[in-house]
């Protein structure tokens, strides 16, 4: 286990360094700068701003200065928001994005596992076909379409829930959670069904049934543990995907999360914020994949070596 962790950390360092280097080069080679505005600024003001944000230095100096900062946890000042550091912006956006991702994964698990188990218990019946076909549709509809449709139906026509915001009005979290969670619920459903079908045909399940255990006990106590392994393996990348991919949902619903800062930073050429968020998201993806592997290894001894 320790080997696995060390090996993964060993890989993570060059991965992060590559992300930093590539992102740095890309943002600096993109046309348009952070201080280009409709009302043209004078050369004196531009020089002052470049000096303030270290942009008057050669690119290599900027790169190594930035790396040195990152090593001590300093991601630099935001170009878009004077007086705010990238760390401050991440700390404002992250809890919200994390909450959104967490609720969405819970939603995905609740709906997905239930639908998957039902499908596996009655394979090739209506109880299987209906949820699985729905899951396929769920996987296929991108959130950029699902979100506005849900807003129109439940927010505007039925007036059941607010159409945007996060914790600003009661009930405003429902639609974003469903929009972000649906595709993942669909994946969970299909993975659970597959996992469960395999387990339900195993000898130990037959033994459990032969012992006279109730069906619910057989399913919940004996089958789920093994049947959920594919779902658990999926949870790590799913959580990372939810965190990094939440920007679409955050933009549709006006949620002040990290994803929205990230998109805004790209449009505004907020170099330090783009770099900071990229590094942070990469770190999250690496970490969640590691956790997912560790949990899978704990559940399945065959994976430990």
């Amino acid at each position: 286990m320790l080997n696995l962790i060390l090996r993964r950390i060993g890989i993570a360092v060059p991965v992060l360094l590559t992300v930093i280097t590539l992102t740095f080069l890309m943002v600096h080679s993109a046309p348009g700068g952070p201080f280009d505005e409709e009302k043209a600024v004078s050369a004196e003001v531009l020089a002052k701003l470049n000096e303030r944000y270290n942009l008057d230095q050669p690119l290599s100096t900027q790169y190594f200065d930035y790396l040195a900062g990152v090593l001590v946890g300093d991601f630099g000042p935001s170009f878009r928001y004077p007086g705010r550091s990238v760390t401050e912006l991440i700390s404002i956006g992250l809890p919200i994005t994390f909450e959104l991702a967490l609720y969405s994964i819970l939603f995905a698990l609740c709906i997905g596992v239930l639908a998957g188990v039902l499908g596996a218990l009655r394979p090739n019946t209506a109880l299987d076909y209906i949820p699985m076909s729905t899951a396929m549709i769920g996987i296929c509809i991108p959130s950029i379409i699902l979100g506005p449709v849900l807003i129109l139906v439940f927010g505007i026509w039925l007036e059941w829930v607010p159409v945007s915001g996060w914790g600003y009005m009661p009930g405003d979290k429902i639609l974003p959670i469903i929009t972000l969670g649906t595709a993942y619920a669909a994946y969970c459903a299909r993975l659970t069904r597959g996992g469960m079908l395999e387990i339900l045909n195993q000898d130990f399940i037959r033994t459990a049934r032969a012992k006279g255990l109730s069906e619910s006990r057989v399913v919940v106590v004996h089958a789920l543990r093994g049947g959920l392994t594919p779902v658990i393996a999926f949870l790590g990348p799913a959580m990372a995907g939810l965190l990094a991919g939440s920007f679409v949902v955050e933009t549709i619903f006006g949620i002040p999360g990290l994803g929205r800062f990230y998109v805004e930073a790209a449009f505004n050429r907020d170099y330090t914020m783009i770099l900071g968020s990229s590094i942070f998201f990469s770190f999250l993806i690496v970490t969640f994949n590691l956790i997912s592997d560790l949990v899978a290894a704990a559940l399945n001894p065959k994976l430990r070596d």
Binding site: Y103, L109, C110, E159, W160, V161, P170, G171, V220, V221
Partner: peptide, 25 residues
């Protein structure tokens, strides 16, 4: 045990999301 887990999930979702809805305007 697993039922409890689902129950907790649903409760968290509901508490986190629901409430009375009067438009600010």
């Amino acid at each position: 045990m697993r039922y409890k887990f689902f129950f907790v999930c649903l409760t968290v979702l509901l508490i986190g999301s629901c409430g009375e809805n009067i438009p600010p305007v």
